[in-house]
Design a protein around this nucleic acid. Structure first.
Lengths: 165, 165
DNA sequence: GTGGCTGCAAACACTTTGCATTTTT
DNA sequence: AAAAATGCAAAGTGTTTGCAGCCAC
């Protein structure tokens, strides 16, 4: 099997995330406010995983004050809108781009906690076959591989004999 | 693809879970106490997913008082010992048997929150191939399929035309 | 007997919520 | 002007921890 080692490339999408969000809000009779726009633009400005706290901090460092409450409320909306995806790798929720980003899954290094994305079409096929066999109508999936990344594998000194007992 | 519809069958293991736990504790110079034995025996008495709160309640209903603190502490140990597996489907952790139970994954009904287990060997193959391609040394994985179960699919009245717009 | 356990309550970490005020359409 | 969003602080959740007494080895 051949897999690309580079980060995944964003998809080309017709609408900017903010516009997508505006449409979503409009349908529900809600408003695209100043704070929401700032938050969405900031989040889609760089592709990385983040949690609520990091986002508050990042925004603050960028000179934008958005209260913790608003950050939590807006993140929830963005997930409902399909713009973000929520990951529960630990006890705090992390988020990543969903809109404008290809379906993918994650490798999680249990040593340094680095998260690597990968894309694999067989997974989708398997997901659908398994769902069908159980009568489920699939709407999504999460495939997480836990292990030790190349860097951590190399950096650990080889165990001494006695440690192996 | 053909998949069994019955629940997975437990593996045959040489040691009872309690014995396995005792060994684990012994190595770390810790003790198999009365409360720990009660908890482990109760947990391995039936195969189902549960969270800390449910376990406290179940034990209490069975006439066994184990404090919430001890339940949390012991669950953590059981995960470290490889007897239980922790699932993070929601914001509270759920647990399931690991020792004496075959590798498997989950279908999660987003409507009624039922969790169905399934076993599929291709996933293991895929996991190893993907790990290799990224230089990871895999130690485990989680494959979660989200969707709507057959029961929920049937019980929902078909949408009216207008709802589909 | 000693070192590890237990239960309790208090502390924690993350997230949600009530409310008075401000902003958006 | 009406309806919804914001920030603050307070309240919720779920989980962990300090400590005095208890129990297994």
């Amino acid at each position: 099997m051949e897999l690309p080692r580079e980060p995944l490339k964003p998809l080309t999408v017709s609408d900017a995330p903010v516009e997508k969000f505006r449409e979503f809000l409009e349908i529900r009779g809600e408003k695209l406010t100043d704070r929401r726009r700032v938050l969405v633009e900031h989040v889609f400005n760089s592709h990385k995983h983040f949690d609520a706290d990091e986002l508050v901090r990042d925004l603050h460092d960028a000179g934008q004050k958005v209260s913790r409450a608003t950050v939590y409320r807006t993140l929830r909306l963005l997930v409902e809108a399909g713009l973000l995806r929520e990951l529960r790798l630990t006890n705090r929720s992390a988020f990543e781009h969903d809109y404008g980003y290809p379906t993918h899954d994650h490798l999680h290094c249990t040593s340094c906690h680095r998260v690597v994305e990968f894309r694999n079409d067989e997974i989708l096929r398997l997901r659908d076959a398994i769902s069908r066999a159980h009568g489920f109508r699939p709407s999504g999936h999460r495939f997480l591989i836990e292990g030790v990344c190349p860097t951590c594998s190399r950096s650990h000194s080889p165990r001494r004999r006695l440690d192996l007992i």
